[in-house]
Every structure is written in structure tokens, then in C-alpha cells.
């Protein structure tokens, strides 16, 4: 065999081996969480809050963490949608490639890359400074702040895909800049839905940012200013318990979190496909 075809053969094998290792890793992560979780899951996990002595192996479930996580992520998402849409629109309408718009984009890109633990630490510092205690409210704020740059940049990129003709047509019909932007939003709606649901998955799965801003509590929050339990933290606390019964519950909590995140990710695919029919091609 010629040297170059031997080389070809060698690297082809290397590539197949790499992709197999990667796929094996992915499947191993998913199957481990699912299999361990299914065997540990019970109905009471889903519909009860922790009873006394839960972390010593007592009865109860993690309803508080499931609902807490959903409250937190939904609140944060609503907050960041209301802020990110205007920002993305503003970036979009400044059609001139000014240095100012580039500055905003760059600083948002930098914010996207900052680890969530730093967001958590900074918000916690501010909370200490003004004397606030960890609560659902501050958890929401922290999560909203760290998904905001991600959401703005993805909506911004999606809006850039809008055909120029549509914008020109909108202006030609006499619309103002704001009315033109509403056309752009409608046109990029499927992408915006995807961005929102992906950000939801990011928000609900993050533990580092809410470790001290949201606190933890064994009961359901009755107001915005009470500490709230969340799934990622429930997993973290349960897995570090010395009791095998409690560790089992971490596996079940992991499965619940995985199901929520996967549902969001699948929903984003289905919904964006569904909304595609309203898009002018």
C-alpha cells in the first residue's frame, strides 16, 4: 500500500474511534442518569415535600425542589424576555455598523462567557451590601441576569437572518421603525421560541449561581421573599449524604431534572417547526 493511503486509513480509523468514544460518552451520561433514576423514583418523590428527618432517610419527596425550580426558572425567563426583546430590537434597528453597537455586542459576548458562579458571587455580595436574605426573588434576579446576555445575542443573531426585502417592504408601506421591528420579530418568531426554551434549560439546570442567592428550604415558598429549594441543589445535597437511601433520591432528582431539560429542548424543536409556517420565505 502507498504511504498516503496508509495515512488515510490510519486517520479514518482514528476518526471513527473518536466519534465512537464521544457517542459512548453521551449515551453513558444519559443512560446512567435514566437507569439509576428510574430504579430510585417513586410516586411520593414527586408529590410530597420532605418530611422530618428526610435527609437521614425519613419519608417524603422533593416536590418543593421541583416546583421551586420551575418557579425560579419561569420567573427568570419572563424577566429576561421582557428585557432581551427590546435590546435585540434596538441592536437590530441601528442599521449603521457603528462602534457603539459593536461595543454593546462585544460586552454582551463577554457577559455570556462569565462563569455563572461569578454571577452568583457578585449578586450575593450586593445582597449582603443592602442587607437582603437569600430568597426566590434574588434567585430569579441572578438567573435572569446570567441568561439575559445569552438570550439577547441569540435573538439578535436570529433577527439578522431576516431578509432585507421584508424590512424594505415594511418601510415602503409607510411603517415607522418600531412597526418594522414588529415585522422582524414576527419573522424570527420560531428562532425566538428556540432561544427562550434553550435559555430556560440553562436557567433551570444551573446550580452555581443560585447556591447562595436562592437558599434552600424544605417547604414550598409562599412569597417571593422566602428561600426556595431547587433541583440542582437538591441533587448536590442528597448525593453528598452518607446514607444510601438519600443518595438514591439524588438519582431520582437527577432523572426529574433531565426530563424537564429534555422536554424543553424537544419542545423547542417541535414549536419552532410549528411556527415556521408563519415565516415569509
Amino acid at each position: 500500500m502507498k504511504r498516503k493511503s496508509m495515512e488515510e486509513y490510519f486517520f479514518k480509523i482514528l476518526m471513527v474511534v473518536s466519534i465512537l468514544i464521544v457517542l459512548g460518552g453521551i449515551l453513558s451520561v444519559i443512560f446512567t442518569v435514566v437507569l439509576k433514576g428510574v430504579s430510585a423514583l417513586s410516586l411520593s418523590m414527586l408529590i410530597e415535600s420532605p418530611h422530618g428527618g428526610y435527609y437521614l432517610g425519613g419519608g417524603g419527596g422533593i416536590l418543593n425542589a421541583i416546583l421551586g425550580s420551575l418557579y425560579l426558572a419561569c420567573g427568570a425567563i419572563i424577566l429576561s424576555i421582557t428585557l432581551s426583546l427590546p435590546v435585540a430590537m434596538s441592536l437590530h434597528q441601528s442599521t449603521m455598523k457603528s462602534r457603539y453597537v459593536e461595543y454593546i455586542r462585544t460586552s454582551l459576548d463577554i457577559a455570556c462567557g462569565i462563569p455563572t458562579i461569578i454571577y452568583g458571587a457578585v449578586v450575593f455580595t450586593i445582597m449582603v451590601f443592602i442587607g437582603a436574605r437569600s430568597s426566590l426573588f434574588w434567585g430569579m434576579i441572578t438567573v435572569a441576569i446570567f441568561i439575559l446576555p445569552i438570550m439577547i445575542r441569540s435573538i439578535d443573531e436570529i433577527m439578522l437572518q431576516t431578509p432585507k426585502k421584508i424590512k424594505i417592504a415594511a418601510f415602503a408601506l409607510g411603517s415607522t421603525r418600531t412597526e418594522m421591528l414588529s415585522v422582524v420579530v414576527k419573522q424570527s418568531f420560531p428562532g425566538i421560541v428556540t432561544a427562550i426554551l434553550l435559555a430556560f434549560g440553562r436557567g433551570i439546570g444551573d446550580a452555581a449561581s443560585i447556591l447562595f442567592t436562592a437558599g434552600y428550604s424544605d417547604s414550598l415558598p409562599t412569597s417571593l421573599f422566602e428561600p426556595v429549594a431547587t433541583l440542582p441543589l437538591a441533587i448536590l445535597f442528597q448525593i453528598s449524604s452518607p446514607y444510601p437511601v438519600v443518595q438514591q433520591r439524588a438519582y431520582a432528582s437527577g432523572l426529574i431534572l433531565l426530563v424537564i431539560v429534555l422536554t424543553a429542548s424537544i419542545a423547542s424543536r417541535v414549536l419552532s417547526k410549528k411556527f415556521m409556517k408563519y415565516v415569509v420565505k
Binding site: L83, S84, P86, V87, M89, S90, L91, Q93, S94, Y103, I104, S107, L108, I110, A111, I114, I118, Y119, V122, T125, I126, I145, L148, P149, I152, T176, R177, T178, E179
Partner: peptide
Amino acid sequence: RGSLDRWSIRFMSIIAFLTSLIAIIIAIVL
């Protein structure tokens, strides 16, 4: 319509400016 447009554009660019401060505020606090 015209002034509504001007005000909403102004409002949006103020929020845009505020979000660009996130990274800077984090740096200052740290």
C-alpha cells in the same frame, strides 16, 4: 405615531445600554 416611534426607540436603546453594563458592573464589584 412618529413620536411614539421615537420614544420607543429611545427606551429600547436605554435598556440596551444598561445590559451592556452587566460585565462592567461585575468587574467593578469584584
